[in-house]
Write a protein that binds this DNA or RNA. Structure first.
Length: 210
DNA sequence: ACTTGATCATAC
DNA sequence: GTATGATCAAGT
């Protein structure tokens, strides 16, 4: 938190210069760059591993693009959703619950050249009882569809705060899944995401906004 | 304006 | 290939 608060208010270019890191001008071909940059700057250790970013703290790090009013510009990716029968059978064991038990959100303000974007005040969030119920209800609804092989029901419209969306290098990035007839079929890979309206709530709550 | 579906890069 | 990090862009 001390590190995060020290970089808050500075631009990405200012911080990158101190570390001698080159900054891409735009993100179209560098979509995860800001997230990896922050992992480096804040000393996270579990890059690209299936663990929290700060394993000893149980804290997951998420950068989140926002406008000047702290309204998120994008949804937030959580984790992949196995469609092959290996998904956790209950919420307590679920990867979604574990990943979201403590999250450090770093808002990134602005949408121009990447170096000009400003690092916002950090928000360390843990879901309260109401958040947990909303997340759990959505997770159970989505997981039920996965477990019965309802692949056509696996679209982004399900879920109030958590949703399932494609997650891969392209639409042809396939994975194996069990369908309603318990047959193996190829379908696009999907992941869990937090809806923008939900992360907006969290940030606004943290900043005391309406 | 906002959501859903599609896509891009890198580590292991 | 599957995980990590996400944003892009078409459609409503």
């Amino acid at each position: 938190m001390i590190r995060a608060e020290r970089v808050a208010g500075r631009t990405i270019a200012q911080v990158a210069d101190r570390f001698g890191l080159p900054v891409p001008v735009e993100l179209r071909r560098h979509k995860g760059w800001i997230g990896q940059f922050l992992e480096y700057v804040l000393g996270a250790s579990a890059a690209s591993r299936a663990e929290p970013d700060f394993p000893h703290l149980g804290v997951e790090l998420k950068s989140i693009p926002v406008d000047e009013r702290a309204h998120p510009r994008e949804s937030t990716y959580v984790c992949v959703a196995p469609l092959n029968g290996s998904i956790e059978k209950n919420w307590e064991e679920s990867w979604v619950r574990r990943k979201l038990s403590r999250v450090l959100f770093i808002p990134i303000v602005g949408e121009g050249p990447v170096g000009d974007r400003r690092i916002g005040a950090p928000v360390l969030w843990a879901p309260d009882e109401i958040d947990r119920k909303r997340l759990r209800d959505d997770w159970e609804e989505i997981t039920e569809r996965i477990m019965v092989g309802d692949l056509t029901g696996l679209h982004g419209r399900v879920g109030e705060v958590l949703q399932l969306r494609p997650k891969g290098a392209s639409g042809s990035d396939a994975t194996w899944a069990l369908n309603e007839d318990a047959e193996w079929v190829e379908t696009m890979a999907r992941g869990f995401y937090l809806r923008r309206s939900f992360t907006a709530e969290l940030l606004h709550r943290a900043f005391g906004l309406a």
